[in-house]
Amino acid sequence: MSADQKRDYGGASMAVLLIGFGAFAIYDTTGYADPDSAVFPRTVAMGLIAVSSVYLTVWLMGRADAATVWERGSWPRRLAFVAVMLIAAFAMPWIGFVPVALASFGLLMMIAMFDAWTLRRAAIYILAGLIIVFGFYGLFGWLLQVPLPRGWLFQG
């Protein structure tokens, strides 16, 4: 092993988390009314715990994989992306589909923008955004008859 290879702390901590999930699953199976529903999850959970424990042991002996190299890249943008997605999903039943879609589209556009904003670019991008949002709205809401959320806040 070369010295510059860092130990896989991330992989090991994931293994610990998976063991925790397996333990929770085994605890969960004790509450089932029908024994048929417990067999499979219990077996799999034990397998998960076993495999992850083996990985931990190997890791403790210092023979696990090398750590994955952390890519560079912007953390604020990554986090903002996830936040916008989650907020959009939670807000949709209240505010309604179209406003949320337009707002989140605009925000994500800004998060993913790496070039300088010029007036021309802004105009084209906003137009494209409108076309995409309303195009999909028409496709789903009208053609495919998907009942898109209308927003409880603005109803009666």
Binding site: M85, A88, S104, F105, L108, M109, A112, F114, I132, P149
Partner: peptide
Amino acid sequence: MPKAILVPAVAFMTIIGTYAINNNV
């Protein structure tokens, strides 16, 4: 497609597409 349109467009597609599976947020 420039990234600033691709990302929101695909993200939007995943949201509306996932919603449409069971009509459920």
